[in-house]
Write a protein that binds this DNA or RNA. Sequence first.
DNA 1: CTATGGCACGGATT
DNA 2: AATCCGTGCCATAG
Length: 468
Amino acid sequence: MLLQTQSHALRPLTTAHLAQTMTLLSLSTQELRQKIESELASNPALELIHDRRCPNCHRRLPATGLCPICSKPQLNAPDQPVVFISARADFRQYSGRASLEELPDEEWTAAEEDLPTYLLRQIAPELDQADRPLAAHLLTCLNDDGLLSVPLVEIARYQHVPLSRVESVLDLIQRSDPLGVGSPTPQEALLVQLGMLAETRAIPALTERAIREGMDLLSRHAYLELGKRLGISTSQAQLIARFISENLNPFPGRTHWGGASQAQTNNQVYGSPDIVISHQNNNRAAPLVVEILSPISGTLRINSLFKRSLAQAPEDKLEEWQAALDQASLLVKCLQQRNHTLVRLMQRLVVLQREFILKGDAHLNPVTRAYLAIELEVHESTVSRAVSGKSLQLPNGRIVPLSKLFDRSLHIRTALRQIIAQERKPLSDTEISELLHKQGYQVARRTVAKYRTMEGILPARFRHASPV
DNA sequence: CTATGGCACGGATT
DNA sequence: AATCCGTGCCATAG
């Protein structure tokens, strides 16, 4: 028995290590944070140091949370992008700020005021004086997305008012400027917006049902399935999806639908990015800086007190404590490995896709995961896991899935979009295919059709005169 | 008859 | 091994 525990304690690494590294790598920053927090809560051998030190070079950090050394390009290699683990774990406000910078000037005044007061001003005239505290309570419960994550009943109980009154006040809020704000789910936000929009404008058939019954499919871009569920064709389902993404906003808190400025917002991702690419000081000429956002602020390490007390552990607890310690050190190690892999991946990726990052969709290099795996001398699946489920914020503030950097057909699709934008008369798929051949893209006529629907472009015949 | 979408197959990718 | 993607063939709509 004794021999068994010893050998068990001696060789827990390798396989377990590998397995955990893989799972950690495939987690997004948010998921990883949850995982770490739960580990931290349950495992006394782990400890989080709230130091304000850079995770890369361990120098003291200024209040901004950005390491002045690591975020600067090296003098001897100014062209090399800087890739580092970012110490600022709280990036919600960060991404929010980035999107605000994109707003045209006239929107600034509205945006500068914070959301709750902005809303309160709107609803004040229609609001019964007695309901003011209730409204204030509701508004302060809004999260960054403009959604209400607290159940209504809870608020009703807290304020000692009937549920119906809470509902009527909330209804007032939902009809205020960021339309749908205060809805409990993105789904309901969309429905409210749709309802208001329906009064002034024609809406594709079945849009409401698509949101009600196919929300899950909609967010997964599973248009084929959506079509089946609604009993319509895939392309019709795609049209509905396109209409929704162009006219509605599932997260009313993020002011994103300002005018016609965003014509091609294809697969915009909402939520927090895992990686942020920006120019230093927002200066377009400055080198690129790549931050891999850390899931936690501070340093995760083994609790040295716990380790020392292991020597005096009571007989019956020894095994349990040892296991906790092993698990903790495993987690710390794997976390480092994950960071290392991500840094190496991004270092190479940013060089390969520099054009795309700076100039946009048309300049995407068709890089495959397998190719990158060979370059980095890691297994394909490692790259796969590192890429999956992560999102990337580009210097222009857009957040896209990291897998977009591995899209093999995006540059052809943008070429296609250009052709159609410049066409004098509607071109048939066959004609477009020929034009693409002249540009050096060998795509079959059938494929043109696929790309066209992917971009949400109507068939030639129906495309005649519709300047939206 | 032409343009286009659906389905399914094979090869590449993950 | 599972999934995605480009393509060919066929049915259908205009």
